[in-house]
Amino acid sequence: MTTILSTKSLHKHFGGVLAVNDVNAEFKARQLRSIIGPNGAGKTTFINVITGKLPASSGAVVFQEQDVTNRPAHVLVRLGICRTFQITSIFMGLSVFENVRIAAQTEIGGSLRVFSAREGLKNVNTKTWEILHRLELKDKADVPSNNLAHGDQRLLEVAMALAGDPKILFLDEPTAGMSPAETEHIAQLIKGLTDTIAVVLVEHDMDVVMRISDEITVLDQGRIIAEGSPRTIQDNELVKEAYLGHG
């Protein structure tokens, strides 16, 4: 399997606090890699640096053999590095359809057309319906997204990320606050995504992580302390200590 994205000695510090400390990670195509670790381990900071939300202090992010360190978020999205957030981030005042449509429009093009109707972009509409269909949000297309249930809002955010045609998708706690049934649904969905793209999952629900991950990276105090298959991680002494020792 080819490596699609890697970090080289990545550091991020806030004042004197090292949130990401010399992390060398590799993300492979069509693989689901989970990033786990106790609270404050630097998981979210790590993906914030990769996806352009925060600048790196030092080190490099390499995407398809291209140095993309500290590129602006919108450039990374256009390259195929998309993400969702821990706290749902969608266009609350717009309908479900419009939320996904605008993401598809940015990906496909046409944003500078000022004299045509936005409904007239055929490719964008087709793609939007495809994604809504795939994520079973089709029936809610016209619903204002602030009226959606929490679980559907999380799903909508995934739909928006997918509309950007990602090559690698970072999901920050997608199951947070979801019911067991919703969690199951999104877990299956995430697993299905790896047929075509790489997925990186930051997740607290260990049941989900152990069930669907191909590989797991464990962070503690900004460092990678273990990497491997779910089974090897479960048996790893260092991991147990990190979670129990100073959790």
Binding site: S111, R113, R118
Partner: peptide, 10 residues
């Protein structure tokens, strides 16, 4: 009401 307007709204 154009695609450009949609970007501004977003």
């Amino acid at each position: 009401h154009s695609p450009f307007g949609a970007v501004l709204e977003a």
